[in-house]
Nucleic acid binder design. Structure first.
Length: 218
DNA sequence: ACATTAAGTGATT
DNA sequence: AATCACTTAATGT
């Protein structure tokens, strides 16, 4: 079987399986022609702050941690990218011809389609592409409003619970292998606060705690 | 058995 | 909620 045939059929299948809203045949043809399939390992840096954005990812499998950095160089977790998603921050940056404002690291093995940025503008003529892009914006914006509420009202317990759900969701596992310290860094909090809230959650029967692991109960 | 690291606790701001 | 100082528990060598 020829390499080319295998690739084109598989890209169609990948779109079908993970991006079911992208149906327009002309658009699918465009993706088949210009997207490249990429695989990266856990811990690999996909994008760094200040780097020039050349492609936009469409995640097929695995998950990607997307972070921002503040003036003092502290990292701030923005969100996780999961299969069927694309990166809202990359989209905004490439539309404005800005360099990347985010850092993206694979938190497990990731497969994806990389779309060259020059098609972002061009493909806006496709209804399916427009709604795909707008939907990723809308979802991130709603998320942003939610976390704004949590922070404004000092709801660390809410933030932590959401963090654990997001994490388990993005890894497809109910057991999270992290220390309280690592979680505290992601939430810009302190280890003691995380430990205390986790203990409360354990007493309420929401989680089961172990050294370096948290089992999320339903 | 000992050192290291994670987690728990109380007091203070 | 964050930070400090200190204790206790788990784990690696």
């Amino acid at each position: 079987m020829c390499y080319f045939c295998r690739m084109t059929t598989s890209i169609e299948q990948l779109l079908d399986n993970h991006f079911p809203t992208i149906l327009d045949t002309e658009l699918v043809e465009g993706i088949k022609e210009h997207a490249t399939y990429r695989e990266v390992d856990e811990g690999d840096l996909l994008m760094d702050i200040g780097a020039k954005i050349t492609t936009i990812p469409m995640i097929i499998s695995g998950s990607v941690k997307v972070m921002r950095e503040d003036e003092e160089g502290r990292e701030l977790l923005l969100y996780y990218l999961k299969p069927g998603e694309t990166c809202a921050m990359s989209l905004t940056c490439c539309m404005a011809f800005k360099r990347s404002e985010i850092r993206a690291v694979a938190q497990e093995k990731v497969t994806m389609l990389a779309i060259p940025v020059e098609f972002m503008d061009e493909w806006m003529k496709f209804r399916d592409w427009r709604s795909f892009v707008m939907n990723t914006y809308r979802m991130r914006f709603e998320e942003l409003l939610e976390s704004l509420d949590s922070i404004a009202f000092h709801r660390m317990d809410e933030r932590l619970l959401k963090y654990l759900h997001d994490k388990s969701n993005s890894l497809n596992a109910s057991e999270i292998q992290m220390s309280h310290q690592e979680i505290a860094v992601d939430l810009n909090s302190s280890r003691e606060v995380i430990s205390r809230i986790l203990k409360q959650m354990e007493n309420k029967g929401l989680v089961k705690l172990g050294r370096n692991k948290i089992l999320l109960l339903d």
